[in-house]
Design a protein around this nucleic acid. Structure first.
Length: 155
DNA sequence: GCCAACGTTGGC
DNA sequence: GCCAACGTTGGC
């Protein structure tokens, strides 16, 4: 099993929005970045655990725990000329962009803030989230990092 | 293939 | 609102 961290801007799609979805499950985000795409398309598996992170907000933080709820599948909006995320270079025969569904398992009572995570950068320094300039919207988390971050919940 | 210009991300 | 970092685009 792998672990991931996915970013979402709460004014676009928040953990509360995910919680309100049927079965707390929804497709996740129009990724248009090849590195992120490759993680989703090639490495994500049903049941993988996911940190749901709020970016670009007052207190950037991990706000929920989720899991991958579907196999990767082509992003239908990439084929729709009317859609904002239409990409004429993606076609159904050879789709360029992919989605997975995610299911919220736990909304955290006490979010784990970026500030807290950064305070442990000596241990978590390899986490792309806290590497300077990193803008990946989906990134792998090692099981050690996962456990360590979970241990910060009580702090 | 190079690289300047531009757009986006996202913390602060 | 600012700005650093980075990816993409497009002229050459």
């Amino acid at each position: 099993m792998r672990h991931w961290l996915v970013k979402s801007e709460p004014n676009v799609f928040s953990v509360d929005d995910l919680e309100a979805c049927p079965d707390q499950t929804r497709w996740w985000k129009h990724v248009r970045n090849y590195q992120a795409r490759n993680f989703m398309r090639d490495d994500m598996q049903i049941g993988d655990r996911v940190f749901f992170y709020h970016s670009n907000t007052d207190i950037p933080a991990i706000v929920g725990l989720a899991e991958i709820a579907s196999e990767p599948y082509p992003d239908p909006d990439a084929f729709d000329p009317e859609a904002k995320y239409y990409d004429p270079k993606s076609d159904p025969e050879n789709p360029r962009w992919f989605l997975v569904d995610i299911r919220l398992t736990t909304k955290l009572d006490q979010p784990i803030s970026l500030k807290t995570i950064k305070a442990h950068s000596e241990t978590l320094g390899d986490l792309p989230l806290i590497r300077k300039g990193n803008r990946l919207s989906v990134m792998p988390v090692t099981s050690e990092q996962w456990d360590y971050i979970m241990s910060l919940r009580a702090a």
